[in-house]
Design a protein around this nucleic acid. Sequence first.
DNA 1: CGCCTCTTTGAGCTCAATCAAGGTGTGTGG
DNA 2: CCACACACCTTGATTGAGCTCAAAGAGGCG
Lengths: 234, 234
Amino acid sequence: MRHTPANTGIIQELKAFRLFEYISEVHLKKLCSTAQIVLTEHKEPLFEAFTKANFFYLVLSGAYKLSKQSPSGEPIILHFSPPGDVIGALIMSQPNPYYPITTTSIGPSRALKIPRDIYLEHWQTNVDLILRIQNLLTQRMLTMQNQRALSKSPLQSKVASLLISLIDKQSEIKDNVQVPIPLTRKEIADSVGSTVESIIRIMSDWSKKGYISTNNQTITIVKADKIVEIIYSE
Amino acid sequence: MRHTPANTGIIQELKAFRLFEYISEVHLKKLCSTAQIVLTEHKEPLFEAFTKANFFYLVLSGAYKLSKQSPSGEPIILHFSPPGDVIGALIMSQPNPYYPITTTSIGPSRALKIPRDIYLEHWQTNVDLILRIQNLLTQRMLTMQNQRALSKSPLQSKVASLLISLIDKQSEIKDNVQVPIPLTRKEIADSVGSTVESIIRIMSDWSKKGYISTNNQTITIVKADKIVEIIYSE
DNA sequence: CGCCTCTTTGAGCTCAATCAAGGTGTGTGG
DNA sequence: CCACACACCTTGATTGAGCTCAAAGAGGCG
């Protein structure tokens, strides 16, 4: 993990994120004062569960997976954070917080590491900003609820739903879209609460039928309507 | 569903909730202006999913279950809201919101029904209050994440975890505690994503072993340590 | 007394987990 | 440049937890 101080160039980069639209440059500078940019390699953790939460993060590029351990020790992936996502903000306002999850880099990634003090002083005091963050959380909550609604559905539905939810952001569903985060079969399994083998059987079936195509860890949804259909089948 | 205007007596009742500690009576009155008290009978919905979200609610007494429909039509229970819980607040700040879930009364219950306008005007403008609500949400999020962590655990673990999470609030885990919300086997099944029959098999096994005792829909945890143990077994 | 909701038990079946074995591609050190 | 490790993918065979289906009892209420 390499740290570099946030320079002025970063401000321009931040302005692109929806979280900060309509926020003045002056204010933005305050929000990032004493922040650092961290670079993480593939599989490198940004922070571990149960450690003290002194910082929160804003994903700049690449992606991170947020995970917990199941009682039997296997990882359970709770969420994938693409660029623009905020990680750890929801617990910043709690007294003496600890991270409830482990955050791991997927591919080389960059994040803005912001001290809790700055959150308490400059973020939490701004109603507009709190609401924007609350909005991100609400979205995450709704996604979790939608996944929960599939708990009794067959495994295919869950996998289909995961893929769609990863591309769903803003754009409407269309064919030949690439899933923006590279995923191993194991990661998909850990996301939907299944096993590598089962995921492989499902995905190779879809590949044969021409619904998706995969290359390394890159998944392309070829026939989006078919995949959407699978979510609701049965 | 019977509506009555919020009277001054309600203010005293509200002051007991942790959400409002340190909030002045004057301010509290503003927060509840034009609010109404609604009485719901057992199984009566407070609001249905996909209807316009013009109000949010504070549970006064009784309880509510928040649920969705799975694609195949069975209900999936996402959360139980005991007194003091806020329902629907997280979507109030979104433009033109719709309820993402259905809320149904468990036993006769009372709730304070507050118009969205009041939320936008008096709740959302108060940083302290937003953070308190955010805190409730964070707790709910963490609970959902913990349940998710059990996705690969056997059914017993999920049921045990549900029971514990329902009594867990504030008090530490001890024997002979009654689950504060009356639950049918079906509701438990819909909560953990299972079937009535499976829940019955598990719970009658526990009853035989003397870990729990049930009477109508009231569940008493007799040997809490045994139940906690089951969460982590396997 | 009939209806409705909830609970219970048994029997059979199925989906996905587990176990086992092998394949492929990439990086690393001798 | 080879061989060895490692991470990931694939396929087949077997198994079992929990679902489905069926049937019935128990309590409450108009």
